[in-house]
Amino acid sequence: MFGLDYSWLADPAYQQWLLTGVINTLKLATLSSSVAILIGMLGAFGLTLRIFWLDALIELFVEVFRNTPPLLQMLFAYFTLSSLGLRVTDPSTGLSVPLLSAFACAAISLSLFGGALAIEAFRSGIETMPRSIIDAARSLGYGRWARFWRIEAPIATRICLPALTNILTNLFKTTSQASVITVPELMYYAGQIYNDTFRTLEVMILVLLIYVVLVSILTFAMARLEAFMAFPGYGRGH
């Protein structure tokens, strides 16, 4: 069809590469998304404390990781962290390997990048919350920590879910850049396959479709979560 040749797809080796690639992409996306959300919440909590030096520190973190290309961050992480000289002996092969694999470096850098964006999203959720809700929580005796986790975070999370969906889909797509530092995810194997077969267009179309499907599942799940968590009586909760 259209002169496209997908006969290579019958090769079990290529199928295996694609499958492994998808699994590693999912692993990397899940891990870095989870850590990014955690960083986002902790960072936003830190900002509610209004401690001068902590504010400055969090702002600096956000500026650095939000305002630089994630690919650069990943390369930076790869070449600094892996050259720290932390090495362990792999028990299965007996070889000395870096403690932080390319995958670990990618996960760390994506977590920090996503975390910086998530801090801003959660912060916007908290700042949108009426000041009087916080007065109510204080007048009921909630301390800072309990107030954040019981009241501010649940409300802010609902407010910032659409923004969070954007961040997570972007983060998912950014995992493809980990191929540059040899993380064997989907994009990496795609390269391997077209270098082998010279079927660049065919491979790219297939990989594109796989990303569309995977990211659509994510956005669908987030939309469901948004509907599920909506405040009854407001917006989607009607």
Binding site: P130, I133, A136, S139
Partner: peptide, 24 residues
């Protein structure tokens, strides 16, 4: 601190103009 005020908040409750119920 808020910690010192906990016993006070137990003794003194407040109702607001905007109700301020927790919507979730």
């Amino acid at each position: 601190s808020e910690r010192q005020m906990r016993a006070l908040r137990h003794q003194v409750a407040m109702v607001f103009q905007q109700y301020n119920l927790f919507p979730h």
